[in-house]
Computed example of a mutant assay.
Amino acid sequence: MQLGSFVTSERRLADGIKIFQSVLPTKDEDRLVVLEFEHGTMIGVFDGHYSDELAEFASERLPRLIAEKFDPTAPDVDQVITQIFEDFDRSLILKVTELFEPGEDWTGEHWTDPGNIFEVVGYSKKDPKFAGARLAVVGTTVLLGIIDKSKKQVWVVSLGDSDAVCGRMQDGKLTPILMNDRHNCTDAKEVEKFLADHPGEQGLIKWNRVLGLLAITRALGDHQFKVQSRPLASRIMMYLYPSPAIPFDEWDKNGNTTPPYLSSSPAIRRFDLLPGDMFVFASDGLRDSMNQVPETERWDILMALVNGESRERQLGYGRVHASPEDNPAELLIRNMLFGDDSDKMAKELADSDRDDISVVVVDLGWTL
């Protein structure tokens, strides 16, 4: 993908659902998934960090694992999905530990020599062992929407801080309904739980980040924050380069010795659908692009733009009017970022510091 260039597509599914996708990449760490399966349709947004590797790997495998076990009539469907997430995450650290002897002691002098570590894990991503082990040191958030075949219900599965919003027609306008929990350091409930899990420790939240490094409190991967063995994290995993720089000495001084500091357990919500409902699934880059707008107004503005309304007063510029050939997901990104302001468009498209923005607009194909 190329900086400043939209990657846009659309699909029309057998049950009448229309899927519109658009990505505006910078780091190219987001991945989008649309999966038709026995019990319905699954939409996935995977937002990687430190690289695209785990977002790519998880997006190819996790939705299919869930599709194989998903039964909308089962009373334990939430527990089944949660177990799949947790098992998948455990499988990532096994890609590291299974390279060593069972019960390996990483505190030994032998493992202070990087050459001994490379002999086991490999020297670069060209080595399948090294490439597999790297999936444990990078990370990704996950957002899944599972629409049942009858289009009567949707399950929203969230791990991290992407966004799922239902647009419901009320009094002639699309009203936003936020459908997922947000797991990051700006969410008061997440922070309260996180602090309670590690009483007496210092530096747990710095700069609105877990241990000063990650804005999210839940993710797949990032096992330096999760493994019980500090030598495994500080000696072995740091050589699966390029890996994030972890200040282990500072963690020790602050008493940060009670991992895990990230969770791999998703939050799951189920909603009944009404005729006319539509969805927007988006990585957090879309939400962050609205920082000039109070959070209480952001989703109203988003749904107004989806519904073809102008919001020049809040955004400071006019919207681009839709034509029949426009992709609604791309048009939504354009109108959120710059609308009809050509100077702002040039600035935004050239911004290499902006987060990736990925959007899926779902038209359920209702016949009203």
Rank of each mutant, 00 (worst) to 15 (best):
R209D: 00
L174A: 01
K173D: 04
L213Y: 02
K189P: 04
L178A: 02
E190M: 15
G167N: 11
A196E: 09
Q202W: 05
L214H: 00
W207D: 07
D161A: 06
A215C: 10
T186P: 04
L213P: 01
R209P: 02
K189A: 14
K206R: 09
M169E: 15
G167F: 00
P176W: 01
P199T: 11
T175G: 04
M179G: 11
A164P: 04
G200E: 05
N208G: 03
L214C: 05
E201M: 13
G203I: 13
G200L: 12
I177E: 03
E201N: 08
R218D: 03
M169D: 00
D161T: 02
R218C: 05
L220A: 09
V165C: 03
V165T: 14
D197S: 15
A196P: 11
E192Y: 11
D181N: 13
K206Q: 15
K193Y: 04
C166S: 11
D171Q: 15
N180A: 08
G172I: 06
V210Y: 05
K189S: 14
K193C: 09
K189E: 14
D171I: 10
K206S: 10
E190W: 02
L178I: 02
L204P: 10
Q202A: 08
A188I: 13
A219F: 03
G203R: 03
V210H: 08
Q170T: 14
M169V: 14
T217R: 01
G203M: 03
V165Y: 06
L195P: 09
E190G: 12
D171N: 15
H198V: 04
E201Q: 15
C185A: 14
D222M: 11
N180I: 08
R168H: 12
G167Q: 00
K173P: 01
M169I: 12
L195I: 14
E190T: 04
R182H: 14
N180P: 13
G212A: 03
T186Y: 15
V165K: 09
D222I: 06
H198A: 11
F194C: 07
R168C: 07
L214R: 04
L159D: 10
L220V: 09
L159R: 11
L220C: 07
V165R: 08
R218E: 02
L220G: 00
P176M: 02
H183K: 08
T175I: 08
E192S: 15
P176S: 07
G200F: 07
A164Y: 03
G212V: 05
D181V: 08
E192T: 07
L220M: 10
C166F: 02
N184W: 13
R209Y: 01
E190V: 06
D222S: 14
D222Q: 08
A215I: 05
S162W: 01
N180R: 06
M169Q: 13
G160T: 10
D161I: 00
A215S: 15
P176G: 05
I177L: 14
G203Y: 11
M169W: 12
G167R: 00
L220R: 06
D187Q: 15
T217L: 04
A215H: 12
V191F: 05
H198W: 11
H183G: 04
D171V: 11
G221I: 13
T186M: 10
